[in-house]
């Protein structure tokens, strides 16, 4: 009675409406299953995150105090702080943002709006997609040769500037791709409307497309910067230090100062034998995460402002 053949036969000679109604319960069921799977995915990823955060917070929160933030590293865990690493990270990230935003967004706009669909654009696109997947240590080796050795007269060797330039290279592909995706999401009717009014390409991009795409671009930039802030391998390669007990001067000379960053300090503390240092490492991780949250917060604030202005 209910063999597949019969169902098939019945199907072929019934009107269309009949095909839909009997399957309703099973379609609701599929719907439910998919919903459950989606929830499971959310719960699993959040559980991992919460467990990690709870573990780190449990270990490290007792270590977070003013002294921890304003002291230099020390052999005594109780007196040790991460001032030099924190300041180093702030310097490097500020420079990376400064370099990568104009270059990355500029390149993205050029590729997407000015030379789209040309042969050259296709070649560049493939290469940029590849670059985004290159392991970060490779960028470290590149930075070592180019910024530390060849550009020594400018960067001063193993300095903040070399580190920032290396990380800029690392995240440029991500920013370019994010920029292009955001630009692509702007309806082409807007472009055509602009051209119809007699605007040049530059005017269309500047006045219509870019403001529309900016929130998406900012999201991409912040994701890229979040990757850069946690990078250790390329900075170790170009020679970020581990113990440093002075701060770069707040001038251009500061760019040419040796430095340390938070992930390197954390890595060093984790590898020490004394358990007290492991607690310091947890504290360092918390500080790093708070910085990351702050950066994301600023980006979301900027994004919302630009969205309102639209």
């Amino acid at each position: 009675m209910t063999s597949p053949n019969q169902v098939l036969q019945g199907d072929s000679c019934q009107p269309n409406a009949y095909k839909f109604s009997p399957a309703l319960p099973s379609r609701y069921k599929t719907d439910g299953i998919f919903k459950a799977l989606a929830w499971a995915a959310v719960v699993i990823s959040l559980t991992v995150l919460v467990v990690l955060l709870a573990d780190v917070a449990n270990d490290g929160i007792s270590r977070i105090n003013w002294n921890f933030l304003t002291s230099f590293p020390s052999r005594r865990p109780a007196e040790s702080g991460l001032l030099s690493a924190l300041v180093g990270t702030i310097w490097v990230m500020a420079l990376v943002a400064l370099f990568s935003f104009p270059i990355g967004v500029g390149a993205g706009i050029f590729l997407e709006e000015f030379i789209a669909d040309s042969f050259f654009e296709n070649i560049v696109e493939v290469n940029i997609a590849n670059l985004a997947a290159v392991p970060s240590i490779i960028y470290g080796l590149l930075g070592l040769q180019v910024f530390v050795r060849w550009l020594f007269p400018i960067t001063g060797g193993r300095t903040i500037l070399s580190g920032a330039l290396t990380l800029t290279l690392l995240i440029l592909p991500i920013i370019i791709i994010a920029t292009r995706e955001s630009l692509r999401a702007v309806p082409s009717s807007l472009r055509q409307a602009g051209f119809a009014l007699g605007a040049t390409r530059w005017q269309v991009v500047r006045e219509i497309i870019f403001p529309q795409a900016l929130p998406g671009i900012l999201t991409g930039v912040i994701l890229a910067l979040s990757r850069a802030i946690g990078e250790t391998a390329p900075l170790i390669t170009i020679g970020a230090l581990t113990f440093i007990a002075f701060l770069p001067p707040l001038s251009l000379q500061g760019l040419r100062t040796t430095f340390s960053v938070l992930p390197i300090q954390v890595f060093n503390w984790v590898s020490r034998p004394q358990a007290e240092f492991h607690l310091l490492a947890a504290g360092g991780i918390i500080v790093l995460m708070v910085m990351l949250l702050l950066m994301n917060g600023i980006a979301i604030y900027l994004r919302n402002r630009f969205q309102q202005n639209r």
Binding site: I236, G239, A240, L241, T242, F243, A245, F246
Partner: peptide
């Protein structure tokens, strides 16, 4: 005196 220590 500025002393710096790296780990290579």
């Amino acid at each position: 005196v500025k002393v710096t220590v790296g780990v290579s």
